[in-house]
Design a protein around this nucleic acid. Structure first.
Lengths: 216, 216, 216, 216
DNA sequence: GATGAATGAGACTTCATTCAT
DNA sequence: TATGAATGAAGTCTCATTCAT
């Protein structure tokens, strides 16, 4: 099963189709354990125990432990960027957003909602990306070559209208994404115990991002 | 060896004092292997081989594998924030920086230089923080309670002067740090293969950060 | 199912009677897999896949994996020696063969033809005999106590006529069988890839066998 | 470790050099277990138990189970044909043997003695050759291309002198080897329980072999 | 009769750690 | 101090077999 298959699987897997009850339990248990200990430090026996399943059952559904990881991570990766991959991105965009602020706000809030819903899996994805070149490659190909170019096509008109700063669109995108990833990293990885006013933190971050790219 | 000892060790370890040739080789090999595969997926036998020592030798110097990790990670953590922990922070600051921009620029460039010099170890630190509560706790205590308060004491006067935006200092700090971490994450983890103009990317990021926090 | 049953089964099994399509496929697949990897290294799941049936189906027809082996091997063992077990062996012999050479030539050519037709199964039989005492016992009982004695009764008259050498009939039989088994072993196991002129090799071997036992 | 290394190892392994006490025990236990159950049906845990060693210890000395098999089998294979690979085969032969009978008798008795001494291992070798192409290839290369040609050079002069039959030397060799292998197969594999007069059986076999190839 | 999900024992192998030398 | 053989617990994975559908 290579990455492409995993991504194809996104349409049947994790969507309660063709999955036995036990398989779903295995998936959920894996997510829990991987998120807590990291992939390499998780044992299939612990996953089996937590899923209430014999260890062999895991391997009936997933040929290897790595397969299990990929089955978890690939669909989320796909969904994470899915909204940015729609065909008529430009059209949809023009219908909906009149200012850059509106666009950024809508996109970020939407994606943050998604991330919050799939937090554990996103955490696993971020943690494992450094160690799995296939993952990284697939991610960078999709993101770099498709997502980025679509967003660029949104940014450029606003630059031309003089609404936002004249830096390379790629830098603007990276800056925006960075701020968001940094926000999440702080919240969920560095200081998971600390309490904070989430809504407000997000609002402030968006403000600063917009502020940072706006043309004075 | 608890975290406090590790931090104390910062003054004797990694500084070529009291370390045998073999011990240094072990440390360097560990850094290489941990950075490449992650702590959990690295084996002491591989480290031994790469260091050119016997397997047993590692355990003569480091009681456990985890000890080895901490010996690597703790000193860097300490050094990473060291400049922000100096006693006379306020005084030093006032002597040197007249504008917020100057301060941010100096601090970020300085720390980025440090990170580049110790990249592997910083990578290990970031990767392992999620899985080692002691590390996380130590980090959050030091950073939150000491570093942040010192930086706050710098930010507030600039806010009073109307030079920067009126958001909570903590949010400003988080935003700034986020942008930097995001920058590094993109460069070194997501797209390590891609080439880019580093100096310029940093410059652009700093610009947007400053822009983002500046009061219009 | 003990050995006797298997042998009894020889009359219903492998003869397309009472066998479903699936069962035949299972049998053929088993033969293929066992011959290639050996019994112990073959998995029922591989056999099922190759037979195009579900894993469970195998066990509907054969209680255990070993049962499957025996169902393959027992009938061939029976058939292999069948011609030498006919009731009126002496009579048949006297009608047909006037010289020892004629007899040996007829018997060997006939059995070699049979073996070629059932090569895979004979291979499996030879390979598994060392590890299954029941098989070995059954084989040695039948062969030693029945086959050998019948052949002895052929050899002795020729010795009395001075046509063949005066060694113990058992030694003559062993020598003859050895040469044949050795021939097969070389051809099919040691050097399966090499080409050779089969007809001639057989002819030469028979010549030397006859030569070896002939009285000068 | 490929076959060539295994063969090279023949000079240091199995000769009590550089082997720890435990390693020797592992080797002996393996031979015992492999010979009894066959390689595939033997478990490393049983070997460890029989050797009085922790299971992990096996893998410190032999990277894989197959490595263990090869470490057992390769040296014997080498030694088995070693006498036929000496440089001055022709010279040695001429000094020692005046008739073909003398030569065959000497060679066979010598090799049979060797085989008896290393019976278990030879058994393992014969049993595993069908399933390990590398073994088979190495065997056939060495035997076919070296051993056979040296023996041929002995046979041809005797054929020219009219002492032995005019069949292709290869056939004569195969016939001779076959008879011997068949003898062993009967004795040690088919009927290991039966008693017999070994010396006499060998003598009879040799007689028939010689008889079979002799020119009348 | 046929399926294939599920099992759990056990296979091979790795690994951090210990200890005699 | 340094070694590396030895350990045994634990890891991933395979397999023959069962059973509900």
């Amino acid at each position: 099963m290579d990455v492409n298959n995993w991504v194809d699987d996104f349409f049947n897997l994790m969507d309660e189709e063709k999955m036995t009850e036990k398989q779903k339990k295995i998936l959920l248990a894996s997510i829990e354990v991987f998120a807590e200990k990291g992939y390499a430090a998780s044992s299939t026996s612990e996953i089996a125990k937590k899923a209430g399943v014999a260890e062999g059952t895991i391997f009936r559904h997933y040929k290897t432990k790595k397969d299990l990881l990929m089955s978890i991570v690939a669909p989320v990766m796909a969904k994470l960027i899915a909204p940015l991959l729609i065909k008529d991105f430009q059209k949809v965009f023009k219908q909906n957003f009149q200012s850059y602020e509106e666009f950024v706000r809508a996109l970020l809030l939407n994606r943050l909602t998604f991330i919050k819903e799939h937090l554990s899996v996103v955490k696993i994805l971020l943690q494992e990306i450094p160690f799995h070149p296939e993952l990284r490659q697939h991610f960078s190909e999709t993101v770099m070559e498709q997502v980025v170019s679509r967003i660029e096509s949104v940014i450029i008109p606003f630059q031309e209208k003089g609404e936002i700063i004249d830096l390379p669109p790629k830098s603007i995108i990276r800056f925006t994404a960075s701020s968001i990833i940094g926000l999440l990293f702080g919240k969920f990885i560095l200081f998971p115990e600390s309490e904070w006013d989430e809504v407000q933190a997000i609002e402030e971050t968006i403000q600063m991002i917009l502020h940072g790219v706006e043309k004075k």
